[in-house]
Design a binder for these strands. Sequence first.
RNA 1: CGGAGUGUAGCGCAGUCUGGUAGCGCACCUGGUUUGGGACCAGGGGGUCGAAGGUUCGAGUCCUUUCACUCCGACCA
Length: 569
Amino acid sequence: MKFSQLLIPTLKEAPNEATLPSHIYLLRGGFIQSVGSGLYNFLPLGKRSLDRVQKVIKEELDKAGAQEVSLSFVTPASFWIESGRFEKYGKELLRFKDRKDSDFVLGPTHEEMMVNLVKQTVKSYKQLPLNLYQINLKFRDEIRPRFGLMRGREFLMKDGYSFHANEADMKREFDLMEATYKKIFTRLGLDFRVVEADSGAIGGSGSKEFMVLADSGEDTIVVCENCQYGANIEAAIRQPKEFAYDTNSEFKKVHTPNTTTIEEVSKFLDISADYIMKTVAKKALYDGGRSEIVLFVIRGSDTLEETKACNAVCANEIVDISDKELFDAGLVAGYMGPLNTPKNIRIVVDDSLKDASGMVSGANEADCHLVGASSDQIENPLYKDIVAVQENDRCSCCGGRLYYTKGIEVGHIFQLGTRYSEPLKAEFLNEQGKTQPFVMGTYGIGVSRLLAAIIEQHHDERGCMWTKESSPFDLVIIVSNIKDELQSKVGQELYSKLSEMGVAVLLDDRKERFGFKMKDFELIGIPCTVVVGQKLHEGKVEIVMRQNLQPQEIATKDVVTRLKEEFKW
RNA sequence: CGGAGUGUAGCGCAGUCUGGUAGCGCACCUGGUUUGGGACCAGGGGGUCGAAGGUUCGAGUCCUUUCACUCCGACCA
């Protein structure tokens, strides 16, 4: 394609709403255009990159035996009501009515739809297994869209669903998808990590996330410096710590004025935060608008992991409680504890506090704490893992040191089991002739997010640096001075020759000065350019790689061969 | 939703405190010069100053309401 004919509106200055490198460079390079909060148009360059990333995904999935379909974007709400997610999904689900006043949703993910498709067509175990996927628009009415393509409301996603006759076969497919995803992200040139994850609103058990490592990532992931263990902070676990308890301390109430924080209590009573039972009150929200106050009890030196807390009580969401609500419930902020609590308040205790004694806790009374308390005094405790793993904790696999890093979630695979097939009555006849629900897996890739992730990981202060299989073009030919007939002619010839070879070439034939075109090359970030310029009179052109920007002179007649070698075209 | 901030030409901004002809840089159009690191000269086009209402002889500027966007927290591919 010729640059002079393409719509590539590059910008010298970035619109001020952009803060992340990927957002800034995608806007400045003319890849995307903002149309509203979390909504973007893809311009020719952006569309080309998107297509190439999709091509990689499709090739690998097809090789793994998955089949592509395309599901209706608008989904009848009845499917969602049936699966129970109409409520559970919350406000992110965009709902609307058609002219006949029927309810519809704009699909944020398509488990219901796909289950329905398969339910109508697959009746026997002989038709299994099946892995169907699509690459389609999704819409999630995010609370706070941000970071450009990273968290848009409308986005392109690959979502795949597999159907099996039994658990073992589903696990086989799950492993195959993990391997396939690794191939995809490797081909795209990404530095990523596969981590254990929380299953969130999709449901099911055993899920893994694919995290592109980048400082701007929105997820905190815990990784081991020693082994391959990696997990999202929401699901990370650690080796239990050993504590020596003072079993002789007398259980009593002590006066502790002005000690509403763990540090203050720790200092006042001269006791390590490890031996304080920190009590965090949250409000858990359930279906049907039902809610309750829950006390989460953890060690003073730990912090509550909200996702784990939410899962522990099977809530849709847990939220902070206002001082008034606390007061109304008979709780005293700063002096809460798991003992002597008002009636009917659910108490969840962290696993690490099992058998803890000689502990300090709030007395549920202003300016008072209890000392010498033990966890077996707690009435009806629900023991769960609810704390966040901290840096320098020990790995549960190998005992190695754990540390935090940031990641961008670009893929997520789930072992669903019968989470959807059962309520949606998607069943088949097994070998024994008995009716049985499908055992399912589901697999997602954020396709448009991948563009942002690639740039987050591959850019410098001049602009984008696309990886080989994600770049909108393979090569740019810059004709330094378009008015120089020889330069123009050689540029054209090179362009024709390479195009015929099937190389995606962009010919920068604009009537602009050399520096201007170089700046655009650097901003757009195509991996390589051939500069046809002054050196032409010596029979030479230059090859410049976007990686290092070091020009290499080469005889004009050898350039095609050289590029062939370099890129294995 | 809570907290903070911003809306003036396609983009980046000044002007708002102290009311009096809507400005600058980039981009765009025409002509000319220039041609290896975002050129120069001359001329030109483009704005309901986010929206509505109010105060005033007069509002980008003051008052009220409202909308949008961005940033920090709770959501997720």
